[in-house]
Write a protein that binds this DNA or RNA. Structure first.
Length: 628
RNA sequence: GCCACCAUAGCUCAAUUGGCAGAGCACCUGUUUUGUAAACAGGUUGUUCUGGGUUCGAGUCCCAGUGGUGGCUCCA
């Protein structure tokens, strides 16, 4: 399997641009050929027409279809209000019902400029198209200098390559909405330095039923949002007095986190990793030496003065690990050295970027740095990829994409020798090929010091998040002057591999909560079983079971509250506890537990010892099933 | 950081044109002793995010700040 060149997320300024990268289940090419695509593209034009009626002085930018809908960007003379949106939506539906035809016309650059003489964004696009500018993915933005086309429906003409539906009558007004998502600011051409426009999002489907389903899917998604479940299941809070982006782990969440941490730590020890522990601060010289200091200027906190020396709250762990490497002379026989640490790091993130557990200001990287000889690079890299595949696989997380982040040849933000970059990029591709891992290459997604392989998943609202990552680095070994003495007694430079299978505990758990919709497999469930006595007279037996199961290493609790059994069942069902053990007279007599699963399946009475053994085996096996 | 929106009890939400701050769940007390999705009765719970302003009177209107949501940019 070879990598395919995929478009970068930004910089395709024509109106066919898709701003959300698509998963492999819905190939972009197929979408672009679909009727739905034409409907959404056309709906965007109709929305623009209605917007221009509401805001005659608005300047129009671009309006492409996206996943689940479309948007159009405008420069507005006044801020848009909810009433404006309502008006535009109503007007839009009327225009759709009027069955206006979409007419395509080829125009010369001259004509196009005349048509859009008062539309600066269109003029900029025309100039780029005429110059034969290429999008970042290398695709021509127009077929040739005279290939400009415009589409007109009713009183609105847009510079556009199409395709469109025949007539607005092909779009069901009841399958269109622009009020599901609020308007957003969006920079012209995705460039923070340029004008911020107002983006109006819409959604359009072939039938009203599809729109209804889409709304229902959104509502379902909210229910499994990790922030909603985090509160419902008492996993974590983010407290405004502690600070935004600084999550506090509650006991249940801390158990989940600790379970994952211990699991990965054990796997790593089996694979020859060595634990290290390093502090959360470091002298600023450390980061100047590593070269992170200027590169991370925007994302690190102000230095802390300690007796006249400056210290940084660390934004990454690698420099500390490099200093451990240099603390002793190293032989070729020592390599590879794999230093692992669950290392807390702190990064300044703009307030608007913060989000639940998936984007925070203090997080823990399940970090490791592998110091390897060049001849070990490929094998070690493969070992790391296998480890990540194992981690994802064990959790049933199959819905990810792998991205090979290569350097952007246009940019000068990278350090290091071109030949080494080339070599490392090829090595990563080879490793993936040998492991049968499907991936695609994206230029501009590399770290500043080297190419990387990232594992990317989508959350419930289809946003993409980078989790696991493996990065090859020739730069830090040089900056820290890392060496080993080779077989021939020559001092040589090792290569570094940075890797984090989870990426960060915070983000990973956020995604994991959504992946399981809060119903964790028993080995991860904060409470694995709850024992519910039917009457207070059964409390002693419940306590006895509790001790017995605790002694078997299970996380269980006897619910001795003075309330009836049915209300306890309801309460614990809500918390997604995998196993409910109901005990009454019959159970005491037979030394059984009556097992009810959180799926509401009633498995009936089961000998206590049999349950204990089966539950322990289930947890031991990290089973995804809760049936015993 | 930027654009738009939002903020009422622990949670989910009410409160007419500016006119006594409420309900359900949770929690507490009592009664009830229950075999698989909410027993009954009573009770507690508020700086209506904060600070100003307008008004006879502000949860409601205005300004500023804080926090949150959706998006952009950025990112583990």
């Amino acid at each position: 399997m070879t990598g395919v060149l995929a478009p970068s997320r930004s910089g395709m300024p024509d109106c066919r641009r898709l701003n959300i990268a698509r998963g492999k289940t819905m190939p972009e090419e197929i979408y672009q050929e679909s009727q739905l695509y034409k409907i959404r593209h056309s709906a965007a034009h109709v929305m623009a027409e209605a917007m221009l009626e509401r805001f005659p002085d608005a300047k129009i930018a671009i309006g492409p279809p996206i996943e689940d809908g479309f948007y159009y960007d405008f420069e507005l003379p006044t801020p848009i209000k909810d009433d404006d949106i309502k008006w535009v939506e109503k007007r839009m539906k009327k225009l759709l019902a009027q069955r206006h035809e979409f007419n395509m016309r080829e125009v010369s650059a001259e004509e196009a400029r005349a048509l859009f003489h008062d539309q600066p964004y269109k003029l900029e696009l025309i100039n780029d198209l005429v110059r034969g500018a290429r999008a970042e993915n290398g695709a021509p933005m127009a077929d040739g200098s005279d290939g400009l086309t415009v589409y007109t429906q009713n009183n609105f003409t847009d510079l556009c390559r199409g395709p469109h539906v025949q007539s607005t009558g092909d779009i069901n007004p009841k399958a269109v909405s622009i009020s599901l998502r609020p308007p957003a600011g969006a920079y012209w051409r995705g460039d923070e330095e340029r004008q911020q426009l107002t983006r109006i999002y819409g959604t359009a489907w072939e039938t009203p039923e599809e729109l209804r389903d889409y709304r229902a899917r959104l509502e379902e998604a909210i229910k499994r949002d990790h922030r909603v479940l985090g509160e419902k299941l008492d996993l974590f809070i983010i407290d405004s007095m502690v600070g935004k982006g600084l999550p506090l782990w509650l006991p249940a969440g801390a158990i989940l986190r600790d379970t994952l941490e211990r699991w990965l730590r054990d796997i790593q020890i089996e694979r020859g990793y060595l634990p290290v522990v390093t502090p959360h601060l470091g002298n600023i010289e450390l980061y100047k030496t590593s070269g992170h200091y200027p590169y991370y200027a925007d994302s690190q906190y102000s230095p802390i003065d300690v007796d006249g020396e400056e210290f940084l709250l660390r934004p990454m762990n690698c420099p500390h690990h490099c200093r451990i490497y240099t603390s002793q002379p190293r032989s070729y026989r020592d390599l590879p050295l794999r230093y692992a640490e669950f290392g807390a790091v702190y990064r300044y993130e703009q307030s608007g970027e913060l989000r639940g557990l998936t984007r925070v200001r203090g997080f823990t990287v399940d970090d490791a740095h592998l110091f390897v000889r060049p001849d070990q690079l490929l094998e070690e890299f493969k070992g790391v990829v296998k480890l990540i595949q194992h981690v994802f696989g064990a959790l049933g997380m199959t819905d990810f994409r792998a991205r090979l982040g290569a350097r952007d040849p246009e940019s000068d933000k990278y350090v290091g020798d071109n030949a080494l970059w080339e070599e490392a990029t090829i090595a990563i591709g080879e490793a993936c090929d040998e492991l049968g891992l499907e991936y695609h290459i994206e230029s501009g997604e590399a770290a500043f010091y080297g190419p990387k392989l990232d594992f990317i998943v989508r959350d419930v609202l289809k946003r993409e998040w980078q989790l696991g990552t493996v990065q090859v680095d020739y730069n830090l070994p040089q900056r820290f002057d890392l060496e080993y003495v080779d077989r021939d007694n020559e001092r040589k430079r090792p290569v570094m591999i940075h890797r984090a299978p989870f990426g960060s505990l915070e983000r990973f758990i956020g995604i994991l909560i959504e992946h399981f919709a809060g119903a964790f497999p028993p080995w991860l469930a904060p409470t694995q079983a709850i024992i519910i006595p039917i009457r207070a007279s059964h409390n002693d037996y419940a306590r006895e079971i509790e001790s017995l199961l605790l002694a078997r290493g299970l996380r269980v609790k006897a619910d001795l509250q003075d309330r009836n059994m049915r209300s306890k069942i309801k309460q614990h069902r809500r918390l997604n506890i995998p196993w409910l053990l109901i005990v009454g007279d019959r159970d005491i007599e037979d030394r059984t537990v009556s097992l009810r699963l959180r799926t509401d399946e009633d498995l009936g009475a089961m000998p206590l010892e049999a349950f204990a053994a089966a539950a322990a085996a289930n947890v031991q096996a990290k089973s995804q099933e809760i049936g015993l």
